[in-house]
C-alpha cells in the first residue's frame, strides 16, 4: 500500500499563482487538514477523484493542469491502434 505514485502535481505552483495561497487556506477550502494538503503536494498521498476535482475547481483550471501522469511508451494513445479484436 505504501508505494510511490507516478502522479505528479502543480499544486504548489498554482498556490503561488493564486495570490500565494497558503496550505492552510487551501485545506480550509477543500475541507481537509493542512497535513493532507502537504502530503498531496509532496506526492505522499493520492487524493480521491472528487478531491482532485475540488482542487482543480479552487484554482479554476482543468484537472490535468493540476495533476500529471507520465506517458507510458507501452500504452497506445489511440484505442483504435490496439490489437484488440473486440475493439470497434
Amino acid at each position: 500500500m505504501v508505494r510511490p505514485t507516478r502522479v505528479s502535481n502543480r499544486i504548489r505552483a498554482l498556490r503561488f499563482e493564486h495570490g500565494e495561497m497558503t496550505q492552510a487556506e487551501l485545506a480550509r477550502l477543500l475541507g481537509v487538514t493542512r497535513q493532507t494538503v502537504i502530503a498531496i503536494e509532496k506526492g505522499r498521498y493520492s487524493p480521491t477523484l472528487e478531491t482532485a476535482f475540488q482542487i482543480a475547481r479552487v484554482f479554476g483550471v482543468p484537472l490535468d493542469d493540476v495533476f500529471q501522469y507520465p506517458d507510458d511508451p507501452n500504452t497506445p494513445d489511440d484505442p483504435d491502434d490496439s490489437d484488440d479484436p473486440h475493439a470497434p
Binding site: 485545506a27 480550509r28 475541507g31 481537509v32 487538514t33 497535513q35 493532507t36 502530503a39 498521498y45 487524493p47 480521491t48 478531491t51
Partner: peptide, 9 residues
C-alpha cells in the same frame, strides 16, 4: 483547528 480528521486519516 476546524478540521482535525479527514478522508486521508
Amino acid at each position: 483547528e476546524r478540521e482535525l480528521t479527514d478522508q486521508r486519516d
